[in-house]
């Protein structure tokens, strides 16, 4: 992504070329990708709902309580598919349908851990595990901290 500190304006040549590129380079298949993301994402959530209901009935949990083991199960499935080398192949079709649900979170953790296995357990698996997922946790925690603080100070 472009976050140029000193934004240099494009020269005339560069501008003309980028217009040519935009004209020639194909756009992604928006509709197909959107439909695939919808179907895959929906199916992943149905599977999640199935596990939520399963834990609700078999362990007599409330809907909220049953959500936690269901999330863990989906993370397990995402991790397993990544380990078997299938996740990236399915995600080629499913796109965001697989990366937005927690399965995608699991995939980003496992893919990084797996990829850096050969750098050893400490420098590889241990420290590289959150290479991609780290930003999700960071921004989630920062958001939650700010909102929690506002809530604790101004609303309570």
């Amino acid at each position: 992504m472009s976050r140029d500190p000193k934004k240099k304006p494009l020269t005339v040549d560069q501008k003309r070329y980028s217009e040519l590129v935009n004209e020639l380079v194909p756009k992604p298949l928006y509709l197909r990708n959107a439909i695939m993301a919808f179907v895959f994402g929906g199916v992943v959530c149905i599977i999640g709902q199935f596990f939520t209901d399963l834990y609700k009935i078999s362990f007599k949990l409330s809907s909220t309580e049953a959500g936690n083991p269901a999330v863990a199960t989906m993370i397990f499935l995402g991790a397993l598919l990544t380990g078997l080398g299938l996740f990236d192949k399915i995600a080629r079709y499913g796109g965001a349908g697989l990366s937005v649900p927690v399965t995608g979170f699991a995939n980003s953790v496992v893919a990084s851990a797996l990829e850096f296995k050969r750098e050893g357990l400490v420098f590889g698996v241990g420290s590289k595990m959150f290479m991609l997922a780290g930003s999700v946790i960071t921004f989630g925690v920062v958001t939650a901290f700010v909102i929690g603080l506002i809530y604790a100070i101004f609303i309570l």
Partner: peptide, 17 residues
């Protein structure tokens, strides 16, 4: 791939280019 982009097993969506 892993030096320039993502881990190979990461399910990143590829663009046509």
């Amino acid at each position: 791939e892993r030096q320039f982009r993502f881990p190979t097993e990461y399910g990143a969506h590829r663009k046509p280019t």
